[in-house]
Design a protein around this nucleic acid. Structure first.
Length: 368
DNA sequence: AATCCGGGGAG
DNA sequence: CTCCCAGGATT
């Protein structure tokens, strides 16, 4: 039976090589200029499944508006979602807000400083707990993200499927065996930095890698075949019809339930089209619990929007029209609220990128 | 263990 | 077009 943890390379030379490289080559990222646990936690949540370049402007705006965990906890959720709009995975923003209140109410406003303590907070899983514990608090905690999976599977020539299960557990074991007692935060960031800038997914830049001489994957000539990742399932098609209804320079927006896709975000309301039916304005109104008298005149087909999510490919026929003067503004079926929003105020609303695409199809731009 | 949950950049 | 990104929650 093979060892669970490969014995090559040895930890000490690898740590020395990577940390020396990191000290010399690391990027100057905003969250590397602070040791405030709140700021580091915020950056780590924003960085979940999200690229560094995407996060940077959001991080700056967010910290400017909510400089402390207390200011975030006291803010209305809708404002937090507005600040998050466009970043995706909106549950992160809801949990961020909930955790801020949790820190205020259950932890006297002070972040837990251990992995176990951090794991008790909303939206903090194995990765984020290890990141905050090591980077903000100097704890000797390991972490595994997509970068670490790639770097360690190559350096230790791990040929298992590391998407999950035993293969991923093996990467965690290696990461835990490598974490130094002192400087764990620096070590973890060095590992991730290498994956982000040198040990990249396609065509790794081994000639620039401080660990190339120690890399077992490269020694075996299999570095480009790693990591081995089971294929993901393709997004399922979903057909919808959306309504962009205007009245007096305002547009009807509805708020989605907080659970599920786009939770808590605002959008022109839409309904799913079952089966292979054609997009139909009558089905649209009925699905939203509206009547013909809610609309002045006929609805016009403005076009189709295609928007791809992790597990769904949305194809939406967009109808535009005028909301009648006597139509009452109330939450359509499937939504929790509705409002008529002035067109010039759309930039200050919690709109998903999908919602912006639907509005754009009806020739409504969102000034930012 | 499988699914759900955004959006965008790179090749 | 495909892949994947400083993942976590839910079932």
């Amino acid at each position: 039976m093979p060892d669970e943890i490969p014995n090559k390379p040895r930890p000490e030379p690898l740590r020395r090589a990577l940390i020396a490289w990191y000290d010399a080559e690391k990027r100057a990222l905003p969250w590397r200029a602070t040791r405030d646990p709140y700021a580091i936690w915020l950056s780590e949540v924003m960085l979940q499944q999200t690229r560094v370049e995407t996060v940077i402007p959001y991080y700056a705006r967010f910290l400017a508006s909510y400089p402390t965990v207390a200011t975030l906890a006291d803010a209305p959720l809708d404002d937090v979602l507005t600040m998050w709009a466009g970043l995706g995975y909106y549950r992160r923003a809801r949990m961020l807000h909930a955790t801020a209140a949790q820190v205020r109410d259950d932890h006297a406003g002070v972040f837990p400083d251990t992995v176990d303590g951090l794991r008790g907070l909303h939206g903090i899983g194995p990765y984020t707990a290890g990141a905050v514990a090591s980077i903000a608090f100097g704890r000797a905690a390991a972490l595994v993200d997509g970068n670490v999976v790639r770097v360690l599977s190559r350096i230790f020539a791990v040929e298992d499927d590391v998407r999950g299960g035993a293969g991923l557990a093996r990467i965690w074991k290696i990461a835990e065996a490598l974490v130094p007692e002192e400087g764990a935060g620096t070590w973890n960031q060095a590992l991730m930095e290498l994956g982000a800038t040198v040990c990249v997914p396609r065509d790794p830049r081994c000639l620039l890698c401080p660990a190339s001489a120690l890399c077992e994957g490269r020694a075996r000539g299999i570095e480009k075949t790693l990591p081995k990742l089971a294929a993901k399932t393709k997004p399922l098609g979903e057909r919808r019809v959306a309504l962009v209804a205007q009245r007096d320079g305002q547009v009807l927006l509805a708020r989605r339930p907080e659970a599920g896709r786009f939770g808590g975000m605002w959008e022109p309301p839409s309904v799913e089209i079952p089966g292979k039916d054609d997009p139909d304005p009558a089905v649209l109104l009925e699905g939203l619990s509206l009547t013909k008298s809610d609309v002045a005149g006929a609805l016009a087909l403005a076009g189709e929007v295609v928007h791809v999510l992790s597990h769904r490919r949305l194809a939406v026929a967009v109808y535009s029209g005028a909301l009648s003067a006597r139509a009452k503004v109330r939450a359509p079926a499937g939504y929790t609220a509705a409002e008529l929003v002035p067109l010039e105020a759309l930039g200050k609303r919690a709109l998903t990128t999908f919602a912006r695409k639907v509005l754009a199809k009806a020739r409504i731009g969102v000034a930012t």
